[in-house]
Simulated scan of single mutants.
Amino acid sequence: MVDTEKLEAVAREELVCLWGDLNEARMYAINGKWSIKCDQLEERIKDLTRLIGPIPWEEIQLSLLELGIYQRVHAELGIDTAEVRPDMAKVAEVRARH
């Protein structure tokens, strides 16, 4: 028997990791912005997001929020909820502390 709660928890953890991998891939891209690896990770993020829904913006790296990457990915999926609209004042506040 499949434990669907555990499966969803594992999928959410993987999605958080994929966002982190995307942030890292973007930093190591030759131009410092985007690469083929970024494209591949974005597709994996979209596939998993379609299955389990979005990860709250509070769990996403600041640069992905500041650059609008997180927001763009969800807009392309047709997801427009408060969960994916970061509070940019809070993002700026956190950035200022780091």
Results as ranks from 00 to 15, higher is better:
Arg44Lys: 15
Trp19Asn: 13
Ile36Tyr: 05
Pro86Phe: 04
Ser35Glu: 01
Met1Leu: 06
Ile55Trp: 02
Pro54Leu: 04
Leu18Gly: 10
Thr49Asp: 02
Trp34Phe: 06
Gly32His: 07
Glu83Trp: 00
Arg44Thr: 12
Leu64Lys: 04
Ala75Asp: 12
Ser63Val: 12
Val16Thr: 12
Arg85Cys: 12
Asp39Arg: 06
Met27His: 14
Val2Tyr: 12
Asp21Gln: 02
Leu22Met: 12
Leu22Asp: 03
Glu83Pro: 04
Tyr70Ser: 11
Leu15Thr: 14
Lys46Met: 08
Leu67Cys: 13
Arg26Gln: 13
Arg97Gln: 12
Arg12His: 08
Leu48Pro: 03
Lys46Ser: 06
Glu43Tyr: 09
Ile45Arg: 00
Gly20Gln: 09
Leu7Arg: 13
Trp34Ile: 09
Val94Lys: 06
Met27Tyr: 08
Gly53Lys: 00
Gly53Ala: 07
Val84Ser: 04
Leu7Tyr: 14
Val84His: 09
Gly53His: 05
Lys90Gln: 08
Ala11Tyr: 08
Leu65Tyr: 08
Pro54Ala: 14
Glu66Asp: 14
Gly53Ile: 00
Ala9Asn: 13
Gly78Gln: 09
Leu67Arg: 14
Leu48Thr: 02
Met27Glu: 07
Glu83Ala: 11
Trp19Leu: 10
Thr81Trp: 05
Ala25Asn: 01
Gln61Ser: 15
Leu64His: 02
Ala9Gly: 02
Tyr28Ala: 06
Ile52Glu: 05
